Amino acid sequence: MYSKLQFLISPLQKFFYFIHSGIHTVIPIENISFGLAIIVFTIIIRILLLPLSIKQTKSTAKMGAIQPEMKKVQEKYKKDPQKSQQEVMKLYKENGVNPMGGCLPMLVQMPILFALFAVFNTLNMKGAGFLWMPDLTLPDPYYILPILSTVTTYFSSKLMQPPGGGAQSKQTSTMNTGMAIFMGFMSLKFKGALVLYWVINNVLQVIQTLVINKMELGNTGVVKKQI
């Protein structure tokens, strides 16, 4: 798989080493510059992907805003699935909601995310640590990063989940919990550099989602259907 993404991996690796070189020039201590380079690199990547992330977050916020109206439509036409679908699509159109709006940006980002995974999993910086970690090219011996990975994965996924109840919401919540536990378990084996990137990325995602949701809360006007 990585061979197919080499066109992305190589430039990203060079970009990371460029950032590290600049930081190392100012702070010539490997156990500080390496970790700082990961943080700065993660922030820059988040900024570059910001338009797609904003689009995805806004789409999720809009879907959440029209949930009450959707429930009313589905309840009214529960004996007529075809009519219910038509009215739901009309509700989408009236409120400018694209049902695939939250998925498409993620699909575009997936190759970049896989490439970043490869970049941080193959960094040649053996012996360089950061904070409590003696070597970022090895798993965290104190399990702090895996714990942070679990917690931040859960909250970043939870915030991206459209509000609402019902079986679908419970299923999504269960999937979020499962994903968080899975990432925490995998982080026990992943290199510290990769997990540090993942944790910082999740924290930035949480901040971004909270800010956008707050802005959308005041800007999203839901067109209510006459039920």
Rank of each mutant, 00 (worst) to 15 (best):
M1C: 07
Y2V: 08
S3F: 06
K4H: 10
K4I: 06
L5V: 04
F7R: 08
L8H: 06
I9Q: 11
S10E: 15
S10V: 14
P11E: 02
L12A: 08
L12D: 07
F15G: 05
F15P: 11
I19Q: 04
I19S: 08
S21W: 11
G22N: 03
H24W: 06
V26Q: 12
V26T: 14
I27T: 05
I29H: 13
N31M: 12
I32E: 10
G35H: 08
A37M: 03
A37Y: 01
I39T: 05
F41W: 01
F41Y: 01
I43A: 02
I43R: 04
R46V: 09
L48S: 05
L49V: 06
L52F: 13
K58N: 10
K62R: 15
K62P: 13
M63Q: 15
M63I: 07
M63R: 14
G64D: 09
A65E: 08
Q67N: 15
P68G: 06
M70N: 04
K71S: 10
K71Y: 07
K72S: 00
V73D: 00
Q74C: 03
Q74I: 01
E75V: 00
K76Y: 06
K78G: 05
D80K: 07
Q82H: 05
Q82S: 08
K83E: 10
Q85T: 06
Q85G: 07
Q86L: 06
Q86R: 04
E87M: 02
V88W: 05
K90R: 10
L91Y: 02
L91R: 03
V97E: 14
N98V: 11
G101V: 09
G102R: 15
C103Y: 14
P105W: 08
M106P: 09
L107K: 09
V108P: 11
Q109N: 10
F114Q: 11
A115M: 04
A118N: 08
F120L: 03
F120Y: 05
N121Y: 06
N121K: 10
N121P: 12
N124K: 14
N124E: 11
N124I: 12
M125S: 13
K126V: 15
A128T: 05
G129E: 10
F130Q: 01
F130N: 05
D135M: 06
D135I: 03
D135A: 09
D135P: 12
P141C: 03
P141H: 09
Y143D: 07
I144Q: 02
S149F: 03
T150R: 00
V151A: 07
T152R: 07
S156V: 05
K158D: 13
M160G: 13
Q161N: 15
P162D: 11
G165T: 03
Q168K: 15
K170I: 14
T172C: 13
S173A: 14
T174E: 13
T177R: 09
M179S: 05
A180W: 01
F182L: 11
F182M: 06
G184L: 03
F185R: 01
M186S: 04
L188K: 03
A193N: 01
A193I: 01
V195K: 11
Y197P: 00
Y197F: 06
V199D: 08
V199N: 00
N202M: 02
N202T: 02
L204E: 00
Q205R: 08
V206H: 04
Q208P: 05
T209K: 13
T209Q: 12
L210S: 08
L210G: 10
L210Y: 10
N213Y: 14
K214D: 04
E216K: 11
L217D: 15
G218I: 02
G218F: 00
V223R: 09
V223I: 09
V223L: 02
K225L: 03
Q226D: 09
